[in-house]
């Protein structure tokens, strides 16, 4: 934790709004303000996390990990979790980019409306939204009733209890995490650059492709990383909308803890998920730095 805090120093110095933070460091009162969240995270996050890691090695021992290796189910589920996370990320990107772009271009009331439409579901419980999707997508649900009534389908289309249901539900829930970083990144793009491309003879499409799109890449990477990592830990939505063949690693962890009281293997699974997540973040952070070079640095 302390590494992270110290790390913010040089970054903060670069950002305009962070000037206050630099000033703040010289005021003694701020140390206390900072200490509260740090202590909170240490006690309520790091400590239990350490406990989980410890449990994975001691209850009963390393056999937890050999079990993970020997049982194909775990490896297969982890691989599937990454595949699903990838598909969700792609879906969110395809939906989120045009949306963020529309938000970026819109003015006044329309912009506010678009922002509200992203944020409203964001403030609704995941459980409620997942259940709502089941009501819409199930064989006797709204969508299928409509399809059958209109004669567009002979029998109910399988929209739920399969990968499609998982992708629909999770993309909907995770979309804000894609749209918001994208939007923030687009707002930072100097619109005169796109105009300049136009005056130099580029068609709007070319200007978008050669100027705007590259400049928005930091947002693409940030949003994708957020959505991908969040997807890895999902379990309510896939359990409600997915089929038995779409179990994700988060569901297995819950089953291990709550149903089987197998804290050892459950903890080992959690540790594996954590490490896998950290690896993704590590790779992602390299990409972002590259992205920042292409995006932010060049525009200066």
């Amino acid at each position: 934790m302390s590494g992270r805090v110290a790390d913010a120093g040089p970054l903060a110095g670069r950002a305009a709004t962070a000037a206050g933070a630099v000033r703040a460091r010289r005021r003694p009162g701020w140390g206390l303000v900072l200490a509260v969240p740090v202590v909170f995270l240490a006690v309520f996050f790091l400590l239990p996390l350490g406990n989980v890691a410890l449990t994975s090695f001691t209850e009963p021992g390393l056999s937890n990990y050999t079990q993970l290796l020997e049982t194909p189910l775990y490896g297969r589920t982890l691989a599937r979790t990454f595949q699903v996370a990838f598909v969700i990320t792609l879906a969110c990107l395809l939906l989120g980019y045009p949306y963020a772009y529309a938000m970026h271009r819109a003015r006044g009331g329309v912009a506010a409306l678009l922002a509200a439409l992203v944020l409203l579901p964001f403030w609704t419980s995941i459980l409620v939204r997942s259940y709502s999707w089941t009501a819409l997508l199930q064989d006797t649900g709204v969508v299928n009733s409509l399809l059958l009534d209109l004669g567009l389908a002979e029998r109910p289309v399988a929209l739920i209890r399969n990968l499609l249901g998982v992708v629909i539900g999770m993309s909907h829930i995770l979309l804000p995490f894609m749209v918001l970083p994208l939007y923030a990144s687009m707002q930072r793009i100097d619109s005169r650059l796109v105009q300049a491309a136009g005056t130099l003879g580029a068609s709007p499409a070319t200007a978008f492709r050669k100027v705007f799109l590259p400049l928005s890449m930091p947002g693409v990477v940030a949003g994708s990383l957020l959505v991908f990592v969040l997807s890895l830990g999902f379990y309510i939505t896939p359990s409600l909308l997915g089929g038995p063949a779409d179990t994700l690693i988060g569901e297995l962890i819950v089953q291990k803890f709550s149903e089987q009281l197998d804290f050892g293997v459950g903890s080992a699974l959690a540790v594996v998920l954590l490490v896998a997540t950290l690896v993704v973040l590590l790779l992602g952070s390299r990409l972002t730095r590259l992205g920042a070079l292409v995006g932010q640095e060049e525009e200066r």
């Binding site: 913010a8 970054l11 903060a12 670069r14 950002a15 305009a16 709004t17 962070a18 970083p181 923030a184 990144s185 930091p218 940030a222 990383l225 957020l226 952070s285 972002t288 730095r289 992205g291 920042a292 995006g295 932010q296």
Partner: peptide, 8 residues
């Protein structure tokens, strides 16, 4: 004006 990396 928030740094992208700080945000991320």
């Amino acid at each position: 004006a928030v740094s992208r990396r700080a945000l991320l």
